[in-house]
Structure formats: C-alpha cells, structure tokens
Write a protein that binds this DNA or RNA. Sequence first.
DNA 1: TAAAATTGCTACTACTCAGTAAAAGTAGAA
DNA 2: TTCTACTTTTACTGAGTAGTAGCAATTTTA
Lengths: 211, 211
Amino acid sequence: MDKVKGKRGSTALKNEITAYKRRRILEEASHLFFEKGYEATALDAVAEQLHVTKPFIYSYYKNKGELLYEICQTGIQLSLNVLEDALAVEGTATEQLKVVVERVARIIIENQRYISVYLREEKSLDPEDARRIRDLRHKFDLQLSDLLAKGKRTGEFDIQHPSRAAIWISGLLSWIALWYHDGGRWSATEVVMDAISTVMKMVQPAGAQRG
Amino acid sequence: MDKVKGKRGSTALKNEITAYKRRRILEEASHLFFEKGYEATALDAVAEQLHVTKPFIYSYYKNKGELLYEICQTGIQLSLNVLEDALAVEGTATEQLKVVVERVARIIIENQRYISVYLREEKSLDPEDARRIRDLRHKFDLQLSDLLAKGKRTGEFDIQHPSRAAIWISGLLSWIALWYHDGGRWSATEVVMDAISTVMKMVQPAGAQRG
DNA sequence: TAAAATTGCTACTACTCAGTAAAAGTAGAA
DNA sequence: TTCTACTTTTACTGAGTAGTAGCAATTTTA
C-alpha cells in the first residue's frame, strides 16, 4: 500500500499532513483570488495569510498556475459530484431535477469562492488546464441535458432543445456564485428555494405548476 | 456652442477626432481584455494593435484603470439604455418584457466583449469606480423589477418576489455574454428567441403559455 | 517662411512579483 | 550527542510593465 514512501517509515501520517498543508494553501489562495482576482494576488500575500513564506508554497505546488487550476477544478468538480449523486436518486425527471437544483445551488453557495474564481479566471488558466476544466463543465451540462431530455420524453418537461435549456439552467446556478453575498438581502435557503421554483417554471408545461 | 475651445478655432472637428481616437483605443483594449484578461494585458500590446506607442494611449486616458472603467461603464450603460428604450414602448407588461429581453439579449451579443469584461473584472476596478458601476447595475435591476411588479399587479406574471425574479432574469441575460460564441453551435437569433421564451416561462402563470 | 502650438515617440525609471539556490533549522535514529 | 533526512527560510535574480520626462516631428497660424 505504501505509495510515496521515503527512506523511513510513518508514510501514511506524513501524507495526511502534506495533504492538509496543500488544502490550507488552496483555501487561503481561493480567498484572496476571490477577493482581489488571480493576477492581482501575489503569492507572498497568500504566504503571509498562512504565516509562512513563498518558497513554502512552492514546495507544495509547482507554480501559481497549478494553484489556480486546482481551485477551478475543485469548483466544477464539486458541482459535478453533487449532480451525479442527485441523478443516482430514484424518481421521476421532475423529482430528480428538483433535487439537482437544490443540491447544486447549495454547494455553489457553500463553495462560492471556488466557483466564482473558476467562472472569472478561465482566461488565466494555461490552455491545457483550461481544456480539462471545459471538459468537466461540458460533462456537467451534458448530464443535465440528459435529464431534461428524459423529462421531455416522458412529457414532464416542455422544452424545445434540452441542451440549450441545460445551459440556461446551469447558467442560472452559476450566476448565484457571482451575486450571492453572505449576510445580504436574502438567506441561502431563500435563494435555493427560489432557484428551484424558477427552474421548475422554466421547464414545466403550462398547467403543470405546483405551489 | 464652443465648449472646450483652445486659443484658436476649428474646435469641433478636433473634438470629434479626439473622441474617435479614444473610441478606437477603447475598442482594441476591450478586445484584448476580453481575450486575455485585464491584468494580463499590457498597454504596450494595446498600443501595438493600434500601431502607436504606449504614451499615445496615456495622452487620451489618464491610466489603465480609466480604460477598464470606461469598458465596464459602456457594457452596463448600453444594456441600461436599451432597457429604458424598451420600457418606453407602450404595451402590457408581457409585451414590454418580451421587447426588453429581445433587445437586451441582442445588445449583449453584439457587445459581448464589453459586457463580459465588466462581469469578470469587477474586482480590478478601483473602489470608487466599482461603486459607480454597481449603481448602474442596480438601476438596471430596479427598472426590471418595477416592470415585473407591474406585471404581477395586473396578474400577467406569477412571481413571488419581483426583485429576486429580476436578478434571475438579468443573470440569464448576463450569462449569454459568458458562454455565447460567435459561429458556435447556435446563432444569435436562436439564442435571443430562446432567451425570450425561457424568460416568459419563468414569469407566466400556469396555463398562460403561448407557442 | 518662421514662430507657435500640438501631437507623438524614444528612452527611461521604479517597482512588483514569479520563481530559485542555497543555507538554516528541526526531528528522528543510532 | 551526532549523523541523516527532511522542512522551511533567507536572500536573490530576472522578467515584465505601469507610468513619465523630455525631445522630435508635424501642423497651424500669420
């Protein structure tokens, strides 16, 4: 089982600690990138937040770009995981869509900084990383589109083009990350509830709407 | 009528030429900021596109930040103007909303680079400029909200909270700037049409939907 | 054609910051 | 305590770029 074993024992714990340090670096970096933007944030500032120095960061990440990539990747992967979990729940397309919107909206609010950095800083990714991120996004839209197509077949949803509808819906969800503000005018729960009812209105046939 | 008159005549034409140069600088800057991001774009690169030098730019704009501000301002102001024009057209709330969505969606597609720079680079604005931009955005959302409230009163729209609905709708419109791609899967017209029908479904009461 | 005004450019400064080499510090094993 | 491996820091380099001072070219005016 020992994967990255040094010359001496106690590898497992060491790996956990390394992983923890990487997580902490990522966390502070995402805060600063969220608040000031990627290019405007110096790694010295990230280091300062952690009470360490810049070379410390470089011993856990190969460069600034890798940090950005992991933040973006986290953002989209979290949403994708939640979507896949929700799709695994048995139910009609209507029921599934509601669960999807609820859970994805929640995860987006909880991980706002990762998601909005991902949405804003795509152009700062190096091309290869950008492609990988786009693939994940595409996977998200595709799965959502499949769900919508299923609902269209069963007559639950009245939509013309599932893949275009998927873009509007994933856009509506992404949009939350760009305007939601903790302690603002509306609570997270209100926003989530409103997102659900708005999305359902977008897809439901006339006369099918519930309270 | 001479407003900014130098010591000698021919002021009007001169002002037009100055305005034209400013517009051209802004145009190229918006292209590059859109493609590579604000911080990652050097003013030397903007100058190169125009076959001039950096000090040329500095004689028309006081600094890089002013350039960003004018791009963002253009983005939101264009949308706001179109919204106000559309609201001036007589008609029911339903008719007005359709016109609003159509025209705003069109202007967003036509001016994608201004709008998406504005959406992405808000954090790079200096605080005073950011406040002014936010005020314009707020004005947009408020006017949209008023229209929705009117439709709610007349029973045309079935929405719980006009200002939250306004955020979803303006988000849906903004979202276009972030994913639309000229010559992509869908034409501008298809996107505009789809935006209209999606928004109308979001607000119309059950049983009120048209083809 | 010469003086005056305007416009643009060359050449520079000052600074920030990503990334690194090498030394110092730390902890476990003998 | 001393050797060894690993971790973190000090101190630096080099590249890139915002912004400017002052000169050169051009145009305008008379």
